[in-house]
């Protein structure tokens, strides 16, 4: 048991989790409406979309890259699928097409970064505009709504009576990503590339493959998120990814994944997404003007990332403290 505790402490998500608990306590004290079950479900529902949108992005950040095109990808996939559904294409086929579109965009990003060797920031920023532009072109300014119920079920339906489908999907995504990132050799390759790309290359790790996998996952999960958004709103429009903006990156980083690569995980991203949504939620409950909210979110992000970096520094100092006395002792004995 103590071993398990030790392991949890080592994990960076542990500190994000502590932050989350503190946040929940503060929120419960400030608003009586907060602690209601329905409110929690609302928060989780909102966090689910953000989480799925950031799930693959987590892999890209672990790799040491960045993907700025997730929001646009979600919008394009959502819009295309809405159009297809209106044209009478069956739901299962639409979902498959949506995921494949994501994979294609991810392949493009992977190609630009690993073969053409553009910096990920520039490459995905460009893809972001291309994909967004495509969405605008195909939508031609209109908003599509009234989608078939078989489709909106994934955004608004319930399983087992009480459980929103959206949350179930998010949990499945988390499980898949957890196994993929933490328990497979390809996941480990992504970590290795993020820790030290040159060392990974010199170790015979297939770096390009790892880069492709990360970018494809990022765009595929973004595509899935696009489907979820559309289903949840029962509507699609070209700018629907915009509201997520860089919230995706914020969710990943608040969850303890390093922007420098090599560290992090999906559990942290899950906590980060919930935290971000929780803050919006409590601000609404407290009646803070929506004009003031972005400012507060900005401040909160700074505070959370700051605490995360402090907690990491602390652990380092503790380790150093142990290392030195032991060896000095040994040396002194040798000298006699």
């Amino acid at each position: 048991m103590s071993h398990l505790l030790e392991k949890t402490k080592e994990s960076r998500a542990f500190y994000s989790f502590l932050g989350l608990i503190i946040l929940v306590i503060i929120c419960s004290l400030t608003s009586s409406d907060f602690s209601k079950i329905e409110n929690y479900i609302t928060i989780f529902r909102q966090a689910s979309v953000l989480l799925v949108l950031s799930a693959g992005l987590t892999a890209v950040l672990i790799l040491g890259g960045i993907d700025l095109s997730v929001g646009a990808t979600a919008a394009l996939v959502g819009c295309t699928c809405a159009l297809l559904l209106k044209a009478g294409v069956p739901t299962w086929a639409v979902i498959t097409i949506g995921l494949c579109m994501g994979a294609v965009i991810g392949t493009l990003n992977g190609f630009l970064v690993s073969i053409i060797r553009l910096p990920a920031f520039v490459a995905t920023y460009a893809t972001n505009w291309i994909v967004k532009g495509l969405a605008i072109v195909i939508m031609n300014g209109q908003i599509i709504f009234n989608l078939p119920e078989s489709f909106t079920f994934i955004g608004t339906g319930y399983l087992f009576g009480q459980m929103p489908v959206l949350i179930v999907i998010a949990l499945v995504v988390v499980s898949i990503c957890y196994v993929l990132y933490q328990k497979t050799t390809i996941g480990r390759d992504i970590f290795s590339c993020g820790s030290n790309l040159e060392a990974a290359r010199y170790s015979g790790i297939r770096v390009k493959r790892a880069q492709f996998v990360a970018f494809i996952m990022s765009s595929m999960f973004a595509g899935l998120a696009g489907l979820l958004m559309t289903a949840r709103l029962n509507a699609a429009e070209a700018s629907m990814g915009d509201s997520y903006g860089l919230n995706t990156v914020a969710a990943v980083v608040i969850g303890g994944t390093s922007m420098l690569g090599g560290e992090g995980g999906i559990i942290g991203t899950m906590i980060g997404s919930i935290m971000l949504m929780l803050i919006t939620n409590i601000m609404n409950l407290l009646g803070i003007s929506s004009f003031a909210q972005p400012m507060i979110i900005g401040l909160v992000i700074i505070v959370m990332v700051f605490f995360d970096s402090i907690s990491r520094d602390e652990r380092k100092t503790v380790r150093r403290g142990v290392a030195i006395p032991m060896n000095v002792q040994k040396r002194k004995d040798d000298i006699g």
Binding site: F191, S192, S195, N196, E198, A199, R201, Y202, G262, E263
Partner: peptide, 9 residues
């Protein structure tokens, strides 16, 4: 340091 090891791993 730069090519042999992932120092933070």
């Amino acid at each position: 340091k730069s090519k042999g090891l992932a120092l933070k791993d």
